[in-house]
Simulated scan of single mutants.
Amino acid sequence: SEARILELHSPDAVHSCVLRACDPSEAAAWFNTLHSALAVLTTAALHEASRAIPDLRHIGWLLRRPRLENNMSSSESSEDMDRWHSIFAAVTDSELRLYESAPWSGEAWRAPAEAYPLIATRLVGSGKRTELPEFSIRCATSEGVITHNLRAETHRDLAAWAKALVNGSHASAVTQRELVCRCLWKGRPSQLVIHYENGFTLLEAGTGSRTLWRYPFDRLRNSSDDGKRILYLDFGGEDNEVELDMEGCPKPIVFILHNFLSAKIHRL
């Protein structure tokens, strides 16, 4: 049965080995021993890699379910979409980086297959099958939201990844401090400033930069978007409902705003 099977994969993702134990208990013993040894080696590898990439904070292997974007192509069956694939992941001070295999050089560390700013990334919890160490990450981009469905080896590993991602997004929010983006308010070219301490300020576009309105964070009652261009901010009362045309996908702004708020709450 599958409970007796162990799979070992090489760091370059080229070679693999399938082992079968006599019974599930022996397989579990081998898994725990191998996992503990690999955890020690991963910690050592993190320290070694930090010499080339000083801002590395967490590294390791994860399983990822293929992303379903729009509709599946004709070559993708439902079985293919349910198959998990190994990826190597790293959390730096500012990014979540995904690699097809473990990086072997400083150049490889700096060239991930995918990279997402932590400040526009949200951890949304584990999957429906809570007995498995699964979790999802939503990354806001200029094209919309990309969701990664991931699985760690153990629940302890999942907790470590969650801590690294949440702490990283909060630290990024504190470091960035301010988000400035152009927009249209009531058809008027404007500039929205979201400051980690001072809240929201809308400035008139141009050299004068006249302040059109200002609200602290504690006035915000709700925020939402239409997924296309419009950002909605409700500061309480009909006269304080703001609609902004961000002239592009508003998702990154919404995610950054939520990470600002989350970091401020976590600081309390």
Score class of each variant (00 low, 15 high):
P189E: 07
P189K: 05
S190P: 03
S190Y: 08
S190F: 03
S190K: 01
Q191D: 11
Q191W: 02
Q191A: 06
L192M: 11
L192S: 02
L192P: 07
L192H: 05
V193H: 12
V193G: 08
V193A: 05
V193M: 11
I194L: 15
I194H: 01
I194T: 04
H195T: 14
H195L: 08
H195A: 11
Y196D: 04
Y196H: 09
Y196M: 08
E197M: 09
E197Y: 07
E197N: 10
N198T: 12
N198K: 12
N198F: 08
N198P: 04
G199H: 09
F200K: 02
F200L: 04
F200I: 04
F200S: 00
T201C: 13
T201H: 02
T201S: 11
T201N: 03
L202Q: 00
L202E: 02
L203V: 01
L203D: 05
L203E: 02
L203R: 05
E204K: 13
E204V: 07
E204G: 05
E204F: 01
A205S: 14
A205P: 02
A205W: 07
A205K: 10
G206K: 09
G206I: 12
G206N: 10
G206D: 11
G206M: 08
G206T: 10
T207Q: 14
T207F: 06
T207R: 13
T207D: 15
T207I: 10
G208L: 14
G208N: 12
G208S: 11
G208Q: 10
G208F: 08
G208A: 08
S209T: 08
S209I: 00
S209K: 13
S209F: 02
R210D: 13
R210I: 11
T211I: 11
T211H: 03
L212K: 02
W213T: 00
W213S: 03
W213C: 09
W213A: 08
R214D: 13
Y215T: 00
Y215G: 01
Y215C: 03
P216L: 03
P216N: 04
F217M: 10
F217N: 09
D218Q: 15
D218N: 15
R219S: 12
R219H: 13
L220V: 04
L220M: 10
N222D: 15
N222W: 12
N222K: 15
S223R: 12
S223N: 12
S224G: 11
S224T: 05
S224L: 03
S224H: 03
S224N: 12
S224M: 01
D225Y: 07
D225A: 09
D226T: 08
D226E: 10
G227R: 01
G227L: 07
G227D: 08
K228A: 14
K228Q: 12
K228L: 10
K228P: 00
K228D: 12
R229A: 07
R229G: 00
R229Y: 11
I230R: 01
I230E: 06
L231G: 00
L231V: 00
L231S: 00
L231C: 00
Y232N: 02
L233K: 01
L233R: 03
L233D: 01
L233N: 00
L233P: 00
L233G: 02
